[in-house]
Design a protein around this nucleic acid. Structure first.
Length: 511
DNA sequence: TTAGGGTTAG
């Protein structure tokens, strides 16, 4: 593709509305465009200092993706990149690198570095890169998950003398951690002649993200100056490992031991732990704290999480009040999805449907999670026909491809309502690449509940083709036989269960 | 005229 053609494609795409389906196409054109720029050579070596200044100041103002491409284009096609490179020129290269590595174009960032090196080598520049260059380059390796490339950059960094630079080493720890190379990350970390809190936090984050909580905790205990980021990383780490109590203990220790105040991100991290333990009072305190510190006004995600947490702590009134207090303009798709799911969770199907329709009225497009919420509501509230309508609407009107959870929901809904034939037809319609044993199991449950022996046997055969070791399936089939008085068959299934060493732990309830 | 750009939590 010629440069002029790439530019016209780029701008024509940019001027129309950017739907998710068009985004990959735009990215492809951007990639092609940058590739063209990399092969563009001109020989105009007139000094244009003021133009460089102008380009740099534009880059420093956080340009959009398109503006950045325009700046890059001007830098190359006017030959400015080949002019005498002073600090301004170096900064233009670095800022372009930064934009590409942060904006999910890591390959372009790496290509740009190659071009930068070649160009600077043939100009009057005294150095080919600085510590900023390598920080951005490592960011690109990290975001594209390319540890091998990162490792090559690491070797190069040593060669050019930045091997023990604080920022570069921290970026190395971060790159290796993100790519899952924890051994390498630790090696760099322990070799660092000096570390700041960011270096420590990067290492601890790497460990928690890969499940090494004990090691992370040991490092956290050794850390000289813990910041709110360090605490948030630990809180989030414990929550993700399904250890909510420890997560809350860290939250309290942060306040009491270090006197550090939680920020928006800490608050977002603590919500799953509160919901998991159903601590309504804790939820209320966090609500009050967020209100007092202006987090509710500044961060819609806190409001959304609060809606979900209140509902999971059993207080639907508070969840709804929080939703109602947000103006329609501020409500995001997640806010709407949260309130719909909250009603679904509490079996309030009509309310869920009502708010789904309200959302549509203001022109918001529901996504797959929103539909999962409303389908769940219909399933639990027995609104079968409405549920089917929503499912078809999702596919035909909104173009959402149903995943296994949508099918599961629908099959559960038909099964609960006793519409077993339709449920079976639906299971048979699930595409081969997404089907799993769970949807068959849902149907078996419905057969058991409604005492349909023939279908139960048929479904069980399907299940056994896929998985033989789940005791619950044998128990259900055996119960189906018992319910119609076929005790010998029930006994046979129980024996089969023993022969195949399929266990079922008896359920228990604390209520 | 000069400074300006970097690494961490979701």
């Amino acid at each position: 593709m010629k440069l002029s053609r790439a530019i016209s494609c780029l701008f024509s795409i940019n001027s129309c509305s950017m739907t998710p389906t068009k985004r990959p196409l735009k990215n492809l054109i951007i990639r092609q465009y940058v590739k063209e720029l990399h092969t563009y050579h001109i020989r105009d070596e007139s000094y244009s200092g003021p133009v460089q200044q102008r380009l740099l100041s534009l880059l420093l103002k956080q340009p959009t993706r398109c503006q950045c491409l325009q700046i890059h284009s001007q830098f190359i096609t006017t030959g400015l990149h080949q002019c005498k490179i002073d600090n301004t020129g170096m900064m233009i290269w670095n800022m372009l690198l930064r934009e590409y590595s942060l904006d999910n174009f890591p390959e372009e960032a790496l290509e740009l570095y190659k071009q930068m090196k070649e160009t600077l080598a043939s100009s009057y520049s005294s150095s080919l890169a600085d510590s900023f260059t390598y920080s951005f380059l490592l960011k690109a390796c990290a975001s594209s998950h390319q540890p091998i490339k990162g490792n090559q950059v690491h070797a190069h960094i040593f060669k050019v003398g930045f091997g023990f630079h604080l920022y570069v080493q921290t970026a190395l720890v971060n790159m290796y951690s993100i790519c899952g190379c924890l051994g390498e990350a630790k090696r760099v970390f322990y070799e660092m002649p000096e570390r700041n809190s960011v270096s420590w936090n990067s290492m601890i984050t790497g460990l928690t993200n890969w499940g090494e909580l004990n090691m992370a905790q040991a490092l956290f205990d050794d850390m000289p100056n813990r910041t709110v980021v360090s605490w948030t990383v630990m809180i989030d780490g414990y929550t993700r490992m399904n250890r909510p109590l420890e997560s809350l203990i860290y939250f309290c220790k942060m306040l009491v031991e270090d006197g550090i105040k939680p920020n928006e991100i800490t608050i977002l991290a603590i919500f799953p732990a509160i919901s998991n333990l159903g601590l309504l009072e804790f939820c209320q305190s966090i609500h009050a704290y967020s209100e007092k510190n202006g987090f509710m006004a500044s961060e819609i995600r806190i409001t959304n999480s609060l809606i979900d947490a209140y509902a999971k702590c059993g207080c639907i009134e508070s969840a709804f009040r929080v939703f109602e207090e947000v103006s329609t303009e501020r409500r995001s798709l997640v806010s709407w999805t949260s309130i719909i799911s909250v009603f679904a969770m509490h079996g309030m199907a009509e309310e869920a449907v009502k708010w789904f329709e309200e959302m549509e009225k203001i022109g918001l497009r529901p996504n797959r999670i929103t539909f999962l919420g409303v389908l769940n509501a219909c399933s639990h509230g027995g609104l079968v026909n409405e549920g089917l309508k929503f499912f078809y609407k999702m596919v035909s009107e909104y173009g959402v491809v149903p995943d296994i959870k949508h099918y599961g929901c629908l099959i559960d809904m038909l099964g609960r309502a006793g519409r077993l034939d339709e449920a079976e037809k639906m299971v048979l319609k699930v595409p081969k690449d997404v089907i799993n044993v769970v949807v068959w199991r849902i149907l078996l449950g419905a057969c058991s509940f409604h005492g349909n022996v023939d279908m139960g046997e048929r479904v069980m055969r399907k299940i056994l083709e896929m998985e033989r070791g789940y005791g619950g399936d044998y128990v259900l089939l055996s119960n189906i036989f018992s319910s119609v008085g076929r005790y010998e068959d029930a006994e046979r299934v129980r024996r089969l269960m023993d022969e195949r060493n399929a266990f079922k732990i008896p359920g228990l309830s604390l209520i």
